[in-house]
Design a binder for these strands. Structure first.
Lengths: 359, 359
DNA sequence: TTGAAAGCGCTAACAG
DNA sequence: CTGTTAGCGCTTTCAA
């Protein structure tokens, strides 16, 4: 058995019994005070708090968790990437959790990690979390989570996780649809799509939204190009697309790819937005300052995280109540200078040459 | 007392005693197996593992923490921002911690948060973490950490934290110096600096490095402009700087600000790099694809996180040994197209007019 | 409104 | 190599 832990060789770490002795009350009363239970007289509460203060008492959460069966913490499974989306979501989740009185435990999964999400969830379960958030998962085969702990999945279809799963769509599809429609409204005959990796639900969502917009207007659906979210993959896609004079509008699944794409287009002599319009996705902080400033669609990361956590905490604390309904996040299209009306050009079937307006 | 927690209305959650019974050994032996202790025969180990598997046993970390006095977890205090630097550092820390067998608990502080770092540390201490990482702290007055837990401070001066503090400089000063020297080597008479917020140690570090480079060559030190890391603050700074024809080289404390700066310069008709050279800091993923591609200095976030965690884990596990020495991270200047030799111009003291080369 | 007693599931120390 | 015994610091239950 370990002796009492000492601090800097001075006094041992105080426990609630020490506080109780000093305040002249029972240990249970100290517990009551620190849990804000009722039935403690103001006077006793004051004495306890004072004694605790003097001793520098801090509650031992491990003991509390063991005795109560609840840890008051939430586990997050997140991708190990500095991408703006996942990072923003994590911040939102942390703040919402803290506001609700829960601590956060984080496990990252790496793409291609054999254990993957299931392993991460398992390690969180061992740690005794009261709830789990899976943020922007990627598809690595079916994950069956054999747990009773409520699971919130941010940005994946409902079928993704176990029995007590709460799902909050990040609304990517709606946003993607709005982005595509913006381009169509500008007169473009069709819109090309530079998608994220197929394994990501987020990428598939956006692809669906793009497709829906095209279908609704009976437009051709050009072949999809798949990137990996990086600017460099956007650049590669841009080189491909640049040679095709029929391409006048591209919707990229994130801003990084859009930026790479624009650079490739520019190097190939295709001007944005004069010759080609480009819409990005996310509204990363620099997108208003690149050349040209990027038209993009802002994701409400904070709102999604907050909303999701509200549902999760509800599922944790009121397991027998009906699950709360998730509301759809708002669409926020930010129109800047990377989109413009479709340039006059050869109409399919007829020969016609026009000069573009002075740039 | 709570009854045993049930899973989906089926069997109760198994504990080590259940595994022991099923495997026909003592509870302590199960504990030995799960802690990889020696002195367990291969046969017994196998039986235990098998029984555990069948029961779906998972160790209860709260109980372990309570009994052993160690939680095998590390707490991180991080800024609640999606900035590339802090986000990358967090990812690095998580991975290093996991590799070392520690779980991660995260608390974000918001700028202007009254409780601030001290409050965050306190909540981590309650959670019983074995060590604490403070990532890229900002200066909010002296923080005195009254704890025996080892603290790793990433990117702040040694004096920052308590008795058992380990500090790892992120080497910003060295990198900033290299960036400034690159500009000087290009023939620029002096280099202007667009700094981060004074409150950030990281910003002050970079400012020091810039100043050191200038001083070493006996150059004028132009007034510093302070931004807030955002592209928009870089843009504002750029508008100021653009009107001063003496400005031919600027070192921005991060890439976002550099990008905003370049845009303002371009709008004012000052070409980059022909008229003004700009160096950024961080090498964010898009910086190679903006216009012009940004010369910047890459921060070795992963190496810093790994190195720091190595020291922290050492301090946790071998408290009586000498602290390990931190090695300096390497300088990695990425030269792209935003920097060029100083343009010919009016030499101080003589009147001389030259036309700039065709752009 | 307060207190006493009995664990929560595990590890530490020691005995076999 | 394996088992026994006593807690870790709190919450729960029940009694006062």
């Amino acid at each position: 058995m370990t002796g009492p832990v000492r601090r800097g060789g001075s006094s041992p770490v105080p426990r609630s019994a020490d506080v109780a002795r000093r305040a002249g009350v029972s240990q249970k009363t100290v517990s009551r005070v620190f849990n804000d239970e009722q039935y403690v007289s103001a006077e006793v509460r004051r004495r306890v708090l004072e004694a605790a203060e003097e001793l520098g008492y801090r509650m031992n959460h491990a003991a509390r968790a063991l005795a109560s069966g609840r840890s008051r913490s939430i586990g997050v499974v997140s991708l190990g990437t500095a991408l703006y989306g996942p990072a923003s979501l994590l911040i939102g989740v942390e703040r919402a959790a803290r506001d609700a009185g829960y601590a956060l435990r984080v496990v990252n999964t790496m793409e291609g990690d054999p254990a993957g999400v299931a392993g991460a969830v398992d390690s969180l379960l061992e740690q005794g979390v009261d709830g789990i958030v899976i943020s922007e998962p990627i598809d690595e085969g079916p994950v069956s989570l054999s747990t009773d702990v409520p699971v919130l999945v941010l940005g994946a279809p409902p079928a993704f996780a176990g029995p007590r799963a709460v799902t909050v769509g990040v609304g990517s599809d709606l946003l993607a649809r709005a982005a595509t429609e913006h381009l169509l409204d500008l007169g473009h005959t069709t819109v090309h799509h530079l998608a994220g990796p197929r394994r990501w639900y987020a990428a598939r969502d956006r692809l669906e939204g793009w497709r829906a917009a095209l279908t609704a207007r009976g437009r051709d659906e050009p072949p999809v190009i798949e990137g990996d979210w990086s600017a460099s993959s956007g650049y590669a896609a841009g080189r491909e697309l640049a040679s095709d004079r029929d391409v006048t509008a591209v919707f990229a699944a994130n801003d990084d790819m859009a930026i790479g794409l624009i650079r490739a287009l520019a190097e190939a002599g295709r001007r944005v937005p004069d010759d080609v319009s480009v819409v990005g996705f996310d509204d990363i902080p620099v997108s208003a300052y690149v050349t040209p400033p990027l038209t993009t669609v802002r994701q409400p990361f904070d709102a999604v995280a907050q909303e999701g956590l509200r549902l999760l905490v509800h599922a944790i604390e009121k397991p027998d109540t009906d699950p709360l309904a998730a509301s759809d996040p708002p669409v926020d299209l930010v129109v800047r200078a990377s989109t413009a009306p479709r340039p006059p050009r050869t109409t399919p079937g007829r020969e016609r040459r026009t000069t573009s307006p002075p740039g």
